[in-house]
């Protein structure tokens, strides 16, 4: 009896140590980023020898980084709007007609881009945008990011719509409301949190996507991750950490906002 108890305690301790180590593994790189952004020297070392805010001052004086920041925001908002529009309409259409042939083809086609390595997507779209003359535009990167963001919005909305009580829509129809009016007054108020979270996810996907943007961007449309990558390959200085810290803060802010709109566990389930 005592030996089984002893064994259970040992197992418990090993289990806790295991997931504790993984917790450290998950958060340590992000901690490194934030801490090194306050470094005083030009070299990234963890922990830094001395601390200062000089790299933050540099950031706000660097037009290149600020331009990249603007580009990232433009592309992120564009992606969020387009992906939300496509995803919400598509999921709603699917919900109206669950057993159509088109619907059963649409779902896998929407999902496939997520499973193709971004490098291959980047190459494919680069060749395509060369052919149709969209190379170097914001639109090219927005369309590429929408390819990745739409499946997320689409599947979030499918799960949101699946919980909606569709008899309410029938009731609105019976009372004489047209399809547009009944959608705006009956469906929308019930699913607006889902739409918001979907749009937020699309924005974050775009903000952090890097490989496709690397292939498609030109100096004028360079996003933050692309500029960070080119900088890292040349010299590893704390400026990248400063920028990364801002990106992490935006993500944390987004999680908090999303958590208020719904709750964290639900969001994480939708992400998978």
């Amino acid at each position: 009896m005592t030996s089984t108890l002893h064994r259970e305690q040992l197992e418990n301790a090993a289990f806790r140590a295991g997931y504790g180590a993984l917790l450290v593994f998950m958060l340590l790189p992000l901690l490194v980023v934030v801490v090194t952004s306050f470094s005083a020297s030009g070299r990234i070392a963890f922990p830094p020898d001395s601390y200062s805010l000089v790299w933050y001052a540099d950031f706000f004086e660097s037009t290149r980084w600020l331009d990249a920041f603007t580009n990232s925001l433009i592309i992120g908002v564009g992606t969020a709007l387009l992906a939300t529009l496509l995803g919400v309409l598509g999921a709603f259409g699917q919900e109206l007609e669950t057993d159509s042939v088109v619907g059963s083809v649409v779902a896998p086609v929407v999902l496939i881009p997520l499973l193709i390595p971004p490098v291959i997507l980047g190459i494919t779209l680069l060749m395509y945008f060369n052919e149709v003359g969209l190379r170097g535009s914001y639109a090219s990167i927005i369309l590429a990011h929408t390819l990745w963001a739409t499946p997320l919005v689409y599947f979030v909305m499918r799960s949101v719509f699946s919980r909606f009580d569709w008899q309410q829509l029938d009731a609105a129809h019976d009372l004489g409301a047209g399809p547009v009016r009944s959608f705006v007054h009956v469906v929308l108020p019930n699913v607006k949190h889902g739409i918001f979270v979907g749009g937020l996810l699309a924005f974050i996907i775009s903000l952090q996507e890097f490989v496709m943007a690397l292939f498609l961007s030109t100096p004028g449309t360079e996003t933050i991750p692309v500029l960070a990558w080119t900088e890292i390959r040349q010299a590893l200085d704390p400026m990248v950490s400063v920028v990364s810290t801002f990106l992490i803060l935006i993500s944390v802010g987004a999680i908090i906002v999303a958590a208020i709109a719904t709750n964290l566990e639900w969001v994480s389930k939708q992400l998978s």
Binding site: L30, Q208, F210, A228, L247, I248, V252, A254, I255, S268
Partner: peptide, 11 residues
């Protein structure tokens, strides 16, 4: 789990 997911893979 969610935080690294939302951070760019360059970082």
């Amino acid at each position: 789990v969610v935080l690294p997911l939302l951070t760019t893979l360059v970082i």
